[in-house]
Design a protein around this nucleic acid. Sequence first.
DNA 1: GCAAGGTC
Length: 678
Amino acid sequence: MSTHGKNVLIIGEKSSQVRTFCETLLPAIKTKKVGKRIYTRSGPWKGNNLTFLPLSGHITTVDTKKGYGWGETAPINIVQDPKALIIKENYEFRKIIRELATKSEELWLATDPDSEGDNIAYEAYKIAIRANPILRVNTRRVWNSSLTSVEILRAFNQLANWSVNQALAVQGRRMVDAWVGFAGTREVTIAARKVRNERGLVLSVGRVQLPTLKLIVDKDIERTEFLVQEKYNILADLLDESRKQILVSVQHDKSPFTNENDVQTILDKLKKSTLGKISSFQQKQTKIPPPRPMNTTDAIALLSRQLKLKADNALEILATLYEQGYISYPRTENRQFKSNFPHNEILTNLQSHPPYKPFFQQIKTMTQVRTNGRKQGTEDHDPIHPTGEIPSIGGKITPLHLKSWTFIARWYIGMFMEDLIQQRGTVRLAIKEEPFSQKYQSTESLGWTEAMNWRRPRETPSFSFEAGQIVQVRNIRSEAFKTKPPARWSDATLIKRLEKLKIGTKSSRPDVIKKLELRQYIVRKGNSYESTNTGKTIITVFNAIWPDLVTPKFTRQVEIRMDEVASETCSYDMMLETIRSEYLFLHQKLLSQIENLQDQLKEAFSDLGSSTYKKRKSHFSTKQRKSKTENASYPCPACNSGNLRERTNSRTGEKFFGCSRYPACSFTSSRNIYKKKG
DNA sequence: GCAAGGTC
């Protein structure tokens, strides 16, 4: 349209984000299909012609170069040769970016405002400047920290300078993860297959996987080593004046007792006692404010706990609710709403939903949450919240999705409601100088727990006494109980601990748990996880070779190096060389221990026996063999180096053909074209 | 085929 303005290419991280940018900035949007399920949007803005290209997260993968595949070389050579790792660009995106870059005079990088977003921008930037070197000096960064019109306009009017340091820091982390992950996994897998000849058997090693596995192994060790103890409480009943009704049962202050003789001594002493003297009775009102806004970890923990879901299923449900427009972007670490967040609109919509109407009698202000949380890092997304639209069952929304949404909506509404008010009381008394006491709590006003009904406190019967009062005492007795070992990890507790330890990220944590299960390092029993002998063996062996890798310490060290690269106190090449040589030394150590590892794995596998483990594995491998022979004969027409494989669209369930080199090559074709004849 | 991290 405007022939005087510049053509600007803008790279976004995902299509939902680009859509919002365009709706805010452009008076008229032209959408163009540029690839399979890839659309650009363009239009005029401030005299320039903007073209937005949404990516789908990363567009490169780290891989091994030719001759360094599985079985082609010893795993240690992946680390020994500093050039063994290569970066593969997604074929389709590369083609699109090249074409768009040659037609552009400026490049604006508008991926998420975090270091991973910088790295994703860098992937596109590299392709673009190769195709059009002029862009190198005409690249700007759009640092947009929230998808509200005000903030989008601010970000696009105040373009930031583009610096590659943060992107390189992340790139370094990606290389390190590949060295450790590829070389470690292959070495351990080779060792495992020597003692258990089985196709498809993979034992993986990773910077995030091992510390996560260690948490589970440690808990199991703690539980096995736990000594069950018999302990005792001493109790007595306080009766009313008529001595007919029990007012409350009180407990000896030294409970629980570990020594049975001590218990007997006190019981003997109090044998004939029928009276006690109240030493104090205190009552107070306690106000508990609503919880803070929820991030991904909170939402996954909530849904997995309330609906008995696995963490990855919970995240999937959140993603679907987001795609269907019922909740905000579900991958966020942020627990803080901005002061100008438009809560009013959302609440007004929710208020029209009859079941939620009564909650609004308890809401005084619809503009601020009552307890705001903390903002983490340079997060762009708001805490998870409902959009105000009420979902109904149908299409992708199942009753489970609806149920999940109600938890999120009720949490959100709860944050604006009044405090939970409790009455708490404590009575203290002496029976022949022996101190007894008891507490109660009763609800005066449900407050926000009216909406968040799963957080309603336990009620205990209330009582009232006066200091100095003499009371009737009966049934002085002891009660024995057994101590319990610490609880196993559930999806909810595990994911919260991982967040606390800063292991993994908001979106990768559920996948890591799933992967450990797939590797049969852990099994899910009921709603909690238990480590297998294989899992325990892996931790034992790596703990002896490289203890830092099985604790969060290695992740910390990598983070420190990343910060150095980002702040230019260390170069990217230096970071890679340092960590590569460190890992090389440790991989040699692993090799020296390989026979020991084999022996230990042999034992671990023999314990597993023949039952479910073998059956499931063998079924898996025949299935794999079948699909391989069926599809191996068709070379990919796009890249010519991969083969077409039958795939299933996880969303629609439709079968299609895709290149075996995906994501490096993203060629796909519908099934009928390549189907065998006859 | 392997990791971890994005997103679909």
